[in-house]
Structure formats: structure tokens, C-alpha cells
């Protein structure tokens, strides 16, 4: 099976690397350096998305937004021009489900099946090959492309035959992650103001029903002075706007999600477009006028323990 991958950014690049040596691989990206790195590893550079599609049985996309997917699929020299009946397109973008369903309908007219398969997890899990892949769409196309997805990670889920369910699941996941992350940080900031050491709060939270992905990953990392996320804050805001949009379309109230969105927006406006999600730690600290790590308090606690 010949595979093509479009979008070799931080996440797409990490995912596509797992395909090298396992399938004949063509790649395309606007960033020539990213393409060159793949060519050095044995991939073939395609001049255009159309050329990549002509030389692939399965085309995977991982782009920032659904609007980028639309441009790459249907724009000049786009993927659609190189597709023929029986080929499969897998959209790994954290896109808008309704728009992805629209792309699938357009491609179906050419006998091409598209399904979505966004990923969920930290960059480290993408690199390690353990990231969660959340797919949805026609079972037949999913089964045919499954060996490709399983080369990226064995953790592949199929959430129904309706295209876009995977992206909806990813959106729900993003919202839960962000809301729990910000709630955890702001409450821990309150605890710090009272004088509780971060390390003991982390232990207490993780021993109880307060535990979550952030308490298990980010809080220990803060205490140890490590970075625990690598993601553009602007993209996180985009993801959350998408979640709020999905809720609004179905008239589902999301009061907590709305507050989380506002906090992220404040962070992005304060830090600028180049900010990383990790910098929200500092934003929460400054909002509460505290520091998560106070070396003296933690050392005192460790000694007492």
C-alpha cells in the first residue's frame, strides 16, 4: 500500500515518521526543510498535493484547520485532482466535523472514501508511537487503512460510521482536558496562597477523586521544573472555540467551558500569537499573584515528612 502524508508540522511530522520504512511514503509540506528531513529518511517529496495523491493509495492529512484541509483537497493542484476511485483520504486534522463531512460527500462523488482520524495525547506519545487515534467513518475504508494507522500507534479507536465523530470526540476530549487543566491550576493556586506545598497538594489530588490528566502530568512536572506540554496556545484556543461552537450549534450550555475559553483567550492576548500552552502556568500564577513552586516551602515539607 502506497501512503502519502500532507502536513509535516510538529504533530503531523511526528505521526508520519512512524510510516517510514513500513510503506512507500510520499510527503508534501509548504516547509521545504520539513520535506527535506523526510527525504533524507527515505520518503519521496511530491511537488504538489495532486501529485502525492496520484502516487498514493491512502492519503493522510494533518493540518492546522479545516479551512487548510479544504484548500489542500480542492484548491489548485489539490489532492482531489490526483485522486481516483478506490483511494482513501484520512484526515488527522483537529477539524470541524460538519466541514469534514462536507469534504467526504464531495470526494464520494469521485468514488473516494474519506474518514477522520484525529489524535489525542501529548507530543511525547506521538513520538513514542502510543498516541490515541480516534477515527470515524465508513468501516470499509477504516479497515483498509487500519494497518497504516496502527503503524502510527496501536491505540486506534473507531467511533461509528458517521464521518466527523472522531473529530467531535477529539473536541470533547480537548474541552475536558483544558477545563480540568485550568480548574486544577486555579484551585492549586488558591492552595498555594494558603501555604500548602505543591508537592503535597499533588499527592493529595492524585490519591483521590480530584485526580486528572493535569494532576498526574503537569503538576509533578511543575514541581520538578520540567515542561509537560508542547503546543501552540493559539491552536488550543482554536480547538476550544470549536468545542464552544459545537455546543452552541446543538444549544448545549457550557458555562465552565465558556470560562475556560475566556481564561485561555486572556492568556493568548497577554502573551501573543507565539505563546505556548505551557505559558498558561505563568498566567494562572500571575492572576492569583502566587508561585506554584516555592523551593523553601517544598524543602521544609520534605524535611518534616
Amino acid at each position: 500500500m502506497r501512503v502519502g502524508y500532507i502536513g509535516l508540522g510538529a504533530m503531523g511530522g511526528a505521526l508520519a515518521r512512524h510510516l517510514i520504512g513500513k510503506f512507500p511514503l510520499s510527503v508534501f509540506d509548504l516547509n521545504q526543510k520539513a520535506v527535506d528531513a523526510f527525504v533524507e529518511l527515505g520518503a519521496t517529496a511530491a511537488a504538489t498535493p495532486a501529485e502525492l495523491a496520484r502516487n498514493s493509495d491512502v492519503v493522510l492529512l494533518c493540518l492546522p484547520r479545516s479551512s487548510d484541509v479544504e484548500a489542500v483537497l480542492f484548491g489548485p493542484n489539490g489532492v482531489a485532482q490526483g485522486l481516483s476511485s478506490g483511494k482513501i483520504v484520512v484526515d488527522q486534522t483537529s477539524g470541524v466535523p460538519a466541514e469534514t463531512r462536507g469534504f467526504a460527500r464531495q470526494l464520494e462523488e469521485k468514488g473516494v472514501l474519506l474518514f477522520d482520524a484525529p489524535v489525542s495525547g501529548a507530543m511525547a506519545t506521538a513520538i513514542a508511537g502510543t498516541i490515541s487515534i480516534i477515527a470515524s467513518g465508513p468501516k470499509e475504508a477504516f479497515q483498509r487503512a487500519l494497518p497504516v494507522l496502527q503503524s502510527i500507534s496501536p491505540n486506534v479507536f473507531h467511533c461509528g460510521e458517521r464521518v466527523g465523530n472522531g473529530q467531535t470526540m477529539k473536541t470533547v476530549n480537548n474541552m475536558m482536558n483544558v477545563s480540568c487543566r485550568l480548574a486544577t491550576l486555579e484551585v492549586v493556586a488558591m492552595g498555594r496562597k494558603f501555604g500548602l506545598p505543591l508537592e503535597v497538594m499533588t499527592e493529595a489530588i492524585n490519591a483521590t477523586t480530584a485526580r486528572n490528566y493535569t494532576s498526574q502530568g503537569m503538576l509533578p512536572a511543575i514541581a520538578q521544573g520540567r515542561q509537560s506540554t508542547k503546543f501552540w496556545l493559539a491552536l488550543q484556543v482554536k480547538d476550544i472555540h470549536q468545542a464552544i461552537g459545537l455546543a452552541a450549534e446543538q444549544r448545549v450550555p457550557m458555562p465552565i467551558g465558556g470560562v475556560a475559553r475566556s481564561i485561555l483567550q486572556i492568556g493568548l492576548n497577554s502573551l501573543g500569537k507565539e505563546a505556548q500552552l505551557e505559558q498558561m502556568i505563568g498566567v494562572i500564577e500571575s492572576m492569583a499573584d502566587t508561585k506554584f513552586v516555592d523551593a523553601a516551602t517544598n524543602a521544609e515539607f520534605r524535611e518534616a515528612k
Binding site: V172, M176, S215, A243, E249, R251
Partner: peptide
Amino acid sequence: AIAACNRLITYECAAMGARNGL
């Protein structure tokens, strides 16, 4: 406080997912 947030966030997000077909 965090445990309560975990639960409320879970209900809120699951409702959004369920209304969108999950």
C-alpha cells in the same frame, strides 16, 4: 473543589458530545 470541577466538566462535555452524535 477539583473533584467537583472534574465531575461538572465531565457532565458538561459529555452532554455536548452526546448532542453531537457520540
